[in-house]
Amino acid sequence: MLHHIAAILLVADHGAFATPCQFESQGEGRVAAIVDARSVRLDDGREIRLMGIEPAATTKQALASLLAGRDVRLRGSDDTPDRYGRQGALVFIGESDNPVQAMLLAQGEALVSAEITDKDCAAALMASEAAARRQKKGSWADPSAIKNAESPDDILAGIGRFVVVEGKVLSVRQAGAMTYLNFGRSWTRGFAATISKRTLPAFESAGISLKSLENKRIRVRGWVEGNTGPRIDIRLVGQVELLGANESTGVRP
């Protein structure tokens, strides 16, 4: 009887900690070539883009050592090719339950892109990145890996690149169809994150009131644009993280 109860607990336990990121199978193949920092070509000619990450300086090298010549399984919620003909997927080596994306993040060899909106999978990828960040692994060893919102020129230097910025939101303002999270007092020079009206419902359904971010320390990630001061356009809820009171920012004053 005891053994039976233990077996039930084991099953329940396994269900409670079900491995995240186990989307529908999208087939398998052998990696024939590393195309770029987040794309590989399989021996059947398919080009696969690793979903959920943005490359760091060492990603391509790390990808080559992990995947060159390996048999992989693909999982994802949509196998429609992008405009470059690449199939987006989470990539698993052999029988591993841990996607290659999580391995790269855990080593500090990539950044979370926030494009995966499945809650559990997104949280697992964020946790892998956070562990590498705390341990200053890979790209996080560089003090400038996290930009300080109070240094807009440093952010502007990363124009056209995917960056991570931390700082305190001084004000939340709406102008037309755009909401601005302002990190600086100067409208023209200060850093701001912009959120268009069409993105607002996603924040509402996640229970996040943008106005409540005023005077809060947050981490923002995305592509740097610079018509006036440096800007990051927020299109996905996962691009914004609230920093806990005890969380060290990693930002040098």
Rank of each mutant, 00 (worst) to 15 (best):
D233S: 15
V240D: 02
I218N: 04
D233M: 11
G229H: 08
G244Y: 10
G238E: 08
L213T: 11
E225S: 08
N227R: 13
L242W: 13
R217V: 11
I232D: 02
R231T: 13
V220G: 01
A245E: 14
V240A: 04
E214W: 06
D233G: 11
T228A: 13
L236I: 14
P230C: 06
R221D: 02
V224L: 02
G244Q: 14
I234A: 07
R231Y: 07
Q239E: 15
L242I: 15
N246V: 08
R221G: 02
D233Q: 14
G222F: 02
E247A: 15
Q239V: 07
N246G: 12
I234N: 06
L242E: 14
G229D: 11
V237K: 09
Q239S: 13
R221N: 04
L236S: 13
N246Q: 13
L242P: 10
A245G: 11
V240W: 02
E225V: 02
R235N: 08
W223F: 09
N215Y: 11
R235M: 03
Q239I: 06
I232W: 06
V240K: 01
R235Y: 00
N227V: 07
Q239W: 09
W223L: 09
V224C: 03
V220R: 05
P230W: 06
I218S: 04
V224S: 00
E214P: 02
W223G: 00
P230D: 00
G238H: 01
I234Y: 04
N246C: 07
L213W: 13
L213M: 12
E214G: 11
T228S: 08
L236A: 15
E241F: 06
N227Y: 10
Q239F: 08
E214I: 08
G222D: 00
G229Q: 06
G229R: 04
Q239Y: 09
N246R: 15
G229S: 09
E241N: 12
L236Q: 15
V237P: 06
G226E: 05
G226P: 05
R217C: 03
W223M: 03
G226Q: 00
E214V: 08
L213F: 07
L243S: 12
I232K: 01
L243R: 13
G222W: 00
G222H: 02
G222E: 05
N246K: 14
L242N: 10
I232S: 05
A245T: 11
V224K: 02
G229I: 01
V220E: 07
W223N: 02
